[in-house]
């Protein structure tokens, strides 16, 4: 999978900016360096970044008039893919094009920032969704407004939610309660960071909540309508007991993929929230890497997220088996 991303991402040649060459379109950039010197510089930059060699074991030949009938050529083992794969198997994820730091270091630093935040958000969102769905399934009077509110939250783009919260709660013109920029001074403990994480956390929970809660409510309602629930109620069990003992268990099965999706999302971070609240996390890192064509970082990130996703799928299947013994 990562191989595919690696190959796709390097398909297009790097432009001058991405090679770290000066932008020559500026006014008064002075004398015109001759074309030969410029090509030499490009070649040197490609060599330094390791993108001078052919991409893969074979490549398509440039069409030549009356040339070889077979449009493929063999490049041997001196290709970017071979080197990358070899290094990866030795545990070397490569170094960033942009700042020369090892990819592992950068991913590690970003994960350290992202995981506590997204982990807490996922746990909170899941707990809230369960509680909310169980409450809603008992059809209280506030069910309708709550459902519309949840759908409304879902319709709201995340950046609107994030900026809205920021403008409402960290604004000298409105409520000036919470800080905007997380900066722990030396010597302060973990708790000094708590206020900085309140807003991003609230934002993430609010964005993940609607889908989980709505799906779970729908599934619970369906289960309550099923035969066994009616039987259980006929036996005199209270709705609450039916819900918690029987319906919830069954309703969770189709929901597992959604829950499983939370795990890779934990690792991938939340681009919008991280950018709005100035947090140096994974989402920020990967978005930057994509826009600046920092392929080693990007491929490393994709590898990590992909691994998390595969793991979550396996976990979801195991969970389904545990919840419903009939699923083979």
């Amino acid at each position: 999978m990562a191989s595919l991303v690696f190959l796709l991402s390097r398909w297009a040649p790097l432009s001058d900016e991405n090679l770290g060459l000066a932008n020559a379109t500026e006014l008064g950039n002075g004398a015109l360096a001759n074309a030969q010197a410029r090509d030499l510089a490009r070649q040197a930059a490609r060599q330094r970044l390791g993108v001078a060699e052919p991409l893969f074991y074979f490549s398509r030949r440039a069409p030549m008039p009356g040339g070889d009938p077979v449009p493929w050529q063999w490049n041997g083992r001196r290709n970017q893919y071979h080197r990358w794969l070899g290094a990866l198997l030795r545990g070397d994820w490569g170094t960033s094009f942009r700042d020369g730091q090892p990819v592992r270091v950068r991913l590690g630093a970003a994960l350290a920032c992202t995981l506590p935040l997204t982990g807490a958000a996922a746990a909170l969102a899941l707990g809230l969704a369960l509680a909310l769905a169980l409450a809603l399934a008992r059809r209280p009077w506030w069910r309708r407004p709550a459902l519309v509110l949840l759908a409304g939250l879902q319709a709201l783009p995340l950046f609107v939610l994030a900026t809205g919260l920021l403008l409402a709660l960290a604004n000298p013109d409105a409520l000036d309660w919470l800080p905007t920029y997380a900066q722990a001074a030396e010597g302060e403990g973990f708790f000094a960071l708590v206020p900085y994480l309140v807003l991003p956390l609230a934002c993430l929970v609010l964005s993940a909540l609607p889908e989980l809660a709505l799906q779970l409510t729908a599934a619970l309602a369906q289960e309550l309508g099923a035969g066994y629930a009616t039987t259980a109620r006929a036996k005199g069990l209270a709705t609450k007991q039916v819900l918690q003992r029987h319906a919830l268990r069954n309703a969770l099965v189709p929901l597992l993929p959604l829950v499983a999706d939370l795990l890779p999302a934990l690792v991938a971070g939340a681009v919008v929230v991280e950018i709005v609240f100035s947090l140096p996390g994974m989402g920020h890192l990967l978005a930057d890497a994509a826009t600046t064509r920092d392929y080693p970082v990007l491929v490393g990130g994709v590898l990590l997220v992909g691994a998390a996703r595969l793991f979550s799928l396996v976990l979801a299947d195991a969970g389904a088996r545990w919840l419903d013994a009939r699923v083979a």
């Binding site: 999978m1 991303v5 999706d261 890779p264 978005a287 994509a290 994709v302 992909g306």
Partner: peptide, 13 residues
């Protein structure tokens, strides 16, 4: 899994 892991931005690239 592949689609979920590849950021949309890569697709754009």
């Amino acid at each position: 899994a592949l689609l979920g892991a590849v950021p949309r931005l890569v697709l754009v690239v």
